[in-house]
Structures are given as C-alpha cells and as structure tokens.
Amino acid sequence: MEKSRPHIIIEGATEYSLGDFDGKHIAYDFSKVLVYLEAKGKLLFGRNFQIYDEDKEILLKLCNYMVRDFDNCKKFDIDPDKGILLSGPVGCGKTSLMRLIRHIVPHQRPYEIIPARNITFAFNHIGYKIIEEYGNGRFYCFDDLGVEPLGRHFGMDCNVMGEVLISRHELYQQTKIITHGTTNLNAEELEERYGKRVRSRMRQIFNLIGFDKSTRDKRT
C-alpha cells in the first residue's frame, strides 16, 4: 500500500485496486475486494484456496466491518467499535477468513491470531501471569474459543480463557481496544463453557457473525 494510493495493494508484481480514492476516503468495491482476497488467499494458503459463493455474505459483513463502512455496518447490525466473534462448524473456514481479511486494511494495526488451547497450555506451565499477558493492550483474535481444555497450575483448576475474556472486557471498557475470536460453539454452548458472567461480557465486546450450521467442511 502506498500512502498516496491507499486503495491500492501490491502483491509481488501485481497491483490490486480495492475501490476508488478521492484524496480523503476510499469507496471500497466489494467485487474488487473479493478479487484481491482470493489472490491473497492463494498466497497465504496455497493455490487450491478459493472463495465460495456460500461464504460471500459472511465476507461482505467482515469486509464492511474491517473498512469501517458505518452505513453497511448499521444495515447488518454490526457495531464497528466492538470485536468480531466468528462462529461456525468445524472446517467452514473461520480461521482462514480471520487471517485473510486483516490484509485489506494494511494501514490499520493488525491483530495476532492465537489458538485458545495454546494460552491454556502456557498457563499450565507459567500460571496467572499468562492471563495478565493476554489481558493487555495488544490486539488479539482468540482462535477456537470454548474447546480448549481446563487450565491447571500447581493443583489449581482455572477456566483460563474465561478469565482472559473478563480481562479483555475490562480493557475494552477502559480503552476501547477490541478483541476478536472464532468458535465452533453456539451462544448456549459458550455460556455452558464459560458461565453467564463471561457470556454477558462477551455480548458487550463481540459482534456475533455466524456461518450457517449446515456449512460444509472445506478441509475434506
């Protein structure tokens, strides 16, 4: 991306236009964004990557959120000042899309994608310092929320990601720093996993965007 042409992204020797730039604002063209995302997806995930027609509605919501298109966010009932919790069945492409869409806004601070299970494993070795670390002011997307094991450190059990989410909620209230996540679980299952207190806070920090439960496994 060039400062004078923020609507242009260069990958190798190829330029991709994401829309039109009037000197102050970018008017994004979703069809052009899709062309770029498919090309970038092949670079990130291999030449067999493709964007499926059935996923374009989800992508449209995610893209409007990322570029902060306030009119379309309102249309889709998305709060651009909250994070995204992307839900859907195993293998539907949640993690890939969250890895991919951050590239359409290279001028924004990127979020780091961390598997929730890795945070729990780190807690088992290091302890409560890990909860403080991931409750800090960095930008994260917690991958596969709700299926990580229970944490255990020096004989004490801990719902590690539940505690991290409470810390991220406090961070959001104080600084408006957002958190993203992906999950295979629905709202009821998340409440069963983390409890009503955490589920209530998740509603306050996340926009829930969900794949249809019948979405096929793209890894098979």
Rank of each mutant, 00 (worst) to 15 (best):
E2H: 10
E2G: 05
R5S: 11
R5D: 03
H7L: 03
I9S: 00
E11T: 09
E11A: 05
T14S: 04
Y16V: 10
L18P: 03
G19V: 05
G19S: 06
D20V: 12
D22Y: 10
G23K: 10
G23H: 13
K24I: 00
H25D: 10
D29S: 11
F30V: 09
S31C: 07
K32P: 02
V33F: 01
L34W: 13
L37A: 05
L37E: 00
E38P: 06
E38A: 04
A39V: 13
G41N: 06
K42N: 05
L43N: 13
L44Q: 11
L44K: 14
F45N: 08
F45K: 05
R47N: 11
Q50S: 11
Y52A: 00
E54P: 01
D55C: 06
D55W: 13
D55H: 14
D55M: 04
I58W: 07
K61I: 09
N64C: 06
N64I: 02
M66F: 07
D71F: 01
D71R: 10
D71L: 00
N72C: 02
N72F: 04
K75G: 00
F76M: 03
I78G: 00
D79M: 01
D79T: 05
D79P: 01
P80E: 03
K82P: 02
G83P: 04
G83C: 08
G83N: 05
I84N: 02
S87N: 05
G88N: 08
P89W: 05
G93Q: 11
T95G: 04
L97C: 03
L97Y: 15
H103V: 06
P106R: 12
P106G: 07
R109E: 08
P110W: 09
P110K: 12
P110V: 11
I113C: 06
I113V: 14
I114S: 03
R117S: 12
I119K: 00
F121R: 12
F121I: 15
A122G: 06
H125C: 05
K129F: 04
I131S: 01
N136L: 08
G137D: 14
G137T: 13
R138C: 07
F142G: 08
D143H: 02
D143F: 02
L145H: 07
V147T: 15
V147W: 00
P149K: 11
L150A: 07
G151M: 13
G151W: 12
G151K: 09
F154W: 10
C158F: 09
M161V: 12
G162E: 14
E163G: 02
E163S: 07
V164H: 05
I166W: 03
I166C: 01
E170Y: 11
L171P: 04
Q173F: 02
I177Y: 06
H180T: 11
T182Q: 10
T183F: 01
A187T: 14
E188M: 08
E189P: 01
E189A: 15
L190Y: 09
E192R: 12
Y194V: 13
G195C: 11
G195W: 15
G195T: 14
K196Y: 15
R197Y: 13
R201Y: 08
M202Y: 08
I205W: 03
I205D: 03
N207G: 00
L208R: 12
D212G: 09
D212I: 12
D212K: 14
S214A: 14
S214R: 14
T215K: 07
T215P: 00
R216M: 10
R216V: 15
K218M: 06
